[in-house]
Design a protein around this nucleic acid. Sequence first.
DNA 1: ACTGAAAGTCGTTGCAT
DNA 2: ATGCAACGACTTTCAGT
Lengths: 156, 156
Amino acid sequence: MQDDQLDGHDRRILKVLQRQGRITNQELAEQIGLSPAACWRRVKALEASGVIKRFAALVDPARVGQPLCALVMITLRRHSLDSTTDFEERVTRYPEVLQCYATTGNADFVLRVVIEDMAAYDRFLNEKLFTLPGISQVHSNFVLRAIKDETAIPMP
Amino acid sequence: MQDDQLDGHDRRILKVLQRQGRITNQELAEQIGLSPAACWRRVKALEASGVIKRFAALVDPARVGQPLCALVMITLRRHSLDSTTDFEERVTRYPEVLQCYATTGNADFVLRVVIEDMAAYDRFLNEKLFTLPGISQVHSNFVLRAIKDETAIPMP
DNA sequence: ACTGAAAGTCGTTGCAT
DNA sequence: ATGCAACGACTTTCAGT
């Protein structure tokens, strides 16, 4: 749904805001070469149209007691619409599941789970993931190290 | 490196700021039941200590012309320290690679790539990924749909 | 759609507790 | 580590181009 055209000003605004979400409107306006009022209206329009989904503080997981991260490949038993939507609804509610993608390839879904330690991951599997309907295979790959962890979409 | 203790106030601040990164300090202070000055000092301390890595605008990839997403599983040929660090340094510089993790399991690295279309992905593989030293296997799994895409770390 | 200025709100600091 | 108070800076709106 790429209805609205973004011009160079919008793209530069997004480029800056993706890295400095709390920059003042004045400073942003200066950097992109627009008056504060014009810049402010563009930012509001980008928010209202959903190009900017929201603003967020990015937190270091290890520093808040969640140093363990796993990529979980999941295959469903039969691909009925019911079990799939049920799976998706429940997975969405688990706060330790930060990302969940339906993918091509061997797995039906790939999850990124951020959690306290192995004991907590064991509980996550037994009490949450394994209770989901229609699960066939679960492969847990643990993250040894994050080489890169970025949220900024590249701007053309 | 979890040196500093976070109390309930800090955790509540982080909980709110992860969802509303641009909330005013006054409103935040109200929500967590602290004076604006005390709240402000805590936020600054969380930023300075690195618990908050940064603030960011979260942008919808499809709305800025990058609707394609792939999870790429990569195996290196020999696991010499040289080729590994070289691989990591170069992958970090590619803006279309948003995430790169070293993992346990079959793959050595898992990448999340956000890109314009298949032609651009083809170029990414040939001009960037395949030119990296020591690559043995590359498995591209395309994201059919994002069921969940969250940045907020769960707060205990 | 932009600029410039006006009015209102907020961030930020210093001081006292 | 907290609250209060004051100043300066910023956001936000509106009239005019």
